[in-house]
Amino acid sequence: MSPETPAARDTPARPPCVLCFNASDPSGAGGLGADIGALASASCHVLPVTTSVWLRDTRQLHGHHALDAEWIDDQARAVLEDMPVAAIKVGFGGSPEGLSAIGSILSDYDDVPVVTYLPELAWLSDGEREAYLEACEELVLPQTDVLVGNHHTLARWLLRDWEDERAPGARDIARAAAAHGVSVTLVTGMVHDDGIDNYLASPEVVLAQARFERIEATFIGAGDTLSAALTALLAHGSDLSQAGAEALTYLDQTLANGFQPGMGHAVPDRLFWADDDTDNPNDTPEEP
């Protein structure tokens, strides 16, 4: 049962409010910057809760500072007690303690759909990474409706003891996630000769899929973009299969229109649809 909330919760908000737990990324490529761009693109009002501060450019992540769990909890509860939330996205939680605070909030608002994205954590030390993943398994996954992640990242985490000669498929990963309480998993980046496959799958069935053409660029922020878009669509009330298909289409378009803002990797253009090829009204017209 969710905690008591103001009477205003009985009136649906437009646009829907989406609560995001993620890191502050000064490059704007990933983290809360990606969440805000993708969610705003889908006409959602974003409630960004900072879990960690990254020192990052478009080339690499140089360091991070995790916020205290109390700060994460206070940020989230301040807005949750003020505004109705239609969906929650969990990105990088900062630390195991941060994930504990997030898990407690998810438990209190268990009627709200939750999308959890697991980023690549290679930049953490082995000990830090294992502690983070253990906390995610125990505290966040049991309350997650949709888990999103790259095929390699999810398989290495959830199928550590995989011994089959074939690579695990999307439903294999979905079954492993379901053992921790996750209903559906969105697996991205399954590379084939003629493209990259992405699947929204339960242990029993594939709900949506999309094949992307290979792009000669390395992107950062794609996973946050996809998971935020999926969260937005769920917040608007789309059914899961439709939301998965539309979120994958959106990601494909953001990558196709991606750009390189600095000296490092490319970034998805989350507002690609706003580009206007018509003449700028402020331009001086040519003489007849």
Rank of each mutant, 00 (worst) to 15 (best):
D277W: 13
S183K: 07
T225C: 09
P203L: 10
P26M: 05
S41R: 07
L226V: 04
L255C: 08
A232Q: 03
A135Q: 02
L271R: 14
L226P: 00
G221N: 12
E97P: 03
T284F: 13
L207C: 04
C20P: 07
G63H: 06
E137F: 03
F272R: 09
T231S: 13
V146N: 05
L61Q: 09
D194Q: 13
A42G: 07
V18L: 12
A69E: 12
E138V: 07
V191C: 12
L226R: 00
A34V: 05
G93V: 13
V46W: 02
T116G: 06
I196V: 15
H45P: 05
L67M: 10
G244Q: 01
H151Y: 15
C44G: 07
G169L: 13
L55S: 10
A177Q: 06
H62N: 09
D74E: 11
G94Q: 03
P119V: 10
G93M: 09
S241T: 05
G262R: 09
S104E: 14
E130R: 13
L233M: 12
D161C: 05
I72Q: 04
G149A: 10
S24D: 06
H152Y: 15
H180E: 07
E130S: 15
E81D: 13
G181S: 05
L147F: 13
T218F: 08
L39Y: 00
F272E: 03
T116P: 03
L159M: 14
P26S: 03
H236G: 04
L124N: 14
A23D: 07
F219N: 08
N282M: 12
L240P: 00
A176S: 08
L106G: 04
L186C: 10
T58P: 03
P6T: 06
T231L: 04
F92Q: 07
F212L: 14
R166K: 08
F92T: 07
P203M: 11
L124W: 12
L158Q: 11
S183W: 05
E130D: 15
A7W: 02
A66I: 01
L200R: 00
D68Y: 04
D74N: 08
L19F: 10
G94I: 01
G28A: 01
L248W: 00
L141R: 03
R77H: 11
A42H: 13
H180I: 05
A245W: 05
P281H: 10
D277N: 13
K89I: 07
A235V: 09
S104F: 04
F272Q: 06
A87W: 05
D269C: 14
A86E: 11
L47R: 01
Q143L: 09
Q143R: 11
D73E: 12
V191N: 14
S43Q: 11
L39W: 00
V115N: 01
A266K: 02
G237W: 06
E97K: 06
P281T: 13
A86V: 12
G244N: 02
N280W: 12
D275Q: 15
T144P: 02
A76M: 04
I196F: 12
D277P: 00
